[in-house]
């Protein structure tokens, strides 16, 4: 089963499916990429997925796998451990990510020197079980990722709900912070963790000069009215059914799905019942 060398067949080869142990091509003419290995004369697939080729590099992209991070990715994670000068963060990756004390915003402004007392009160910033949104900053030699929250967009999460989907369903978008018109903010983490929360007005977000540690690292939820609660649950359930149908999530899909669901006038909890998912996907296909 040779990958065709001809360029006109390129589109064809990108869609080709492969399963582990199937030979792809000759190891002399091509370089092996992720999801493949070389055995003698042949490049062989090691995961089930689609074959992709860039010039001489052949890779197989697994259809379902753990999140493989890239620098600059936006991720949502959960603190699993507090260690000296660092937090360990579960980010759906092959090992826990690291958030250094030096890569978070500390109270008292960006320019402030890091003090020993900060190390002693690390739990006042992030505790085990806290959720946060961060950016991938760098990698360690063993492949573990280092995160940072040195932006006012990043930091601790509250007023919402976490939904987990397969990471392949999250495409790279212009912005991963979505504000839906139903008064719900969505953060699409590239690692497949999605945070759905009450909308915070731009003006109410903690500004640069008034960086308020109390508010940023607060563990208390704001008051959330019933309508917002229903909207959050509805968005969460929509994400769940779209993920169950393996539909890639983008801002457009979410908006269309939300509109369609509101048209159906069903109860929020009925969303997860029966064949609602298929109906939703059909409806989305019809519009798109």
């Amino acid at each position: 089963m040779e990958v065709d060398l001809e360029d006109e067949d390129f589109e064809d080869t990108t869609r080709k499916l492969i399963v582990p142990g199937e030979p792809l091509t000759s190891s002399h003419a091509f370089m092996r990429g992720h999801g493949t290995y070389v055995d003698g004369e042949e490049v062989v697939a090691s995961v089930a997925g689609t074959v992709e080729r860039v010039n001489k590099l052949v890779t197989v992209r697994a259809i379902r796998t753990r999140y493989s991070p890239e620098v600059g990715d936006l991720v949502v994670g959960r603190i699993t451990e507090v260690q000296p000068r660092r937090w360990k963060v579960d980010a759906n990756s092959r090992q826990d990510a690291v958030l250094m004390l030096s890569s978070v915003n500390l109270p008292g402004g960006v320019q402030r020197r890091k003090l020993e007392s900060d190390e002693l009160q690390m739990r006042t910033f992030f505790e085990e079980g806290d959720l946060l949104v961060a950016e991938v900053q760098a990698f360690f030699s063993d492949g573990a990722m280092s995160l940072h929250t040195r932006s006012l967009k990043y930091g601790k999460l509250r007023n919402g709900q976490l939904v987990t989907v397969p990471p392949i369903l999250i495409k790279r978008l212009k912005s991963h912070f979505l504000a839906l018109p139903c008064g719900v903010d969505v953060i699409l983490g590239l690692n497949g963790y999605i945070w759905v929360s009450k909308h915070v007005k731009q003006s109410q977000q903690e500004g640069e000069e008034g960086f308020d540690a109390q508010a940023v690292y607060s563990n208390k939820n704001d008051d959330i009215d019933d309508a917002t609660r229903a909207a959050i649950s509805r968005v969460c359930n929509i994400i769940r059914i779209l993920a169950a149908q393996f539909v890639p999530l983008t801002d457009v899909t979410l908006l269309e799905a939300y509109d369609w669901v509101v048209e159906q006038e069903g109860d929020v909890k009925d969303l997860l019942q029966g064949d609602f998912g298929e109906a939703l996907v059909t409806a989305l296909g019809g519009r798109g």
């Binding site: 499916l17 399963v19 392949i168 790279r172 890639p248």
Partner: peptide, 27 residues
């Protein structure tokens, strides 16, 4: 077993519609 894995992969790829997730460069 191969057929089962292929069928499953096929289903998922078909459901995703657009096919494989593209990296930033290839995208």
């Amino acid at each position: 077993m191969r057929r089962a894995v292929r069928t499953r992969t096929q289903e998922l790829v078909a459901a995703m519609g657009a096919g494989p997730r593209a990296g930033p460069g290839e995208h």
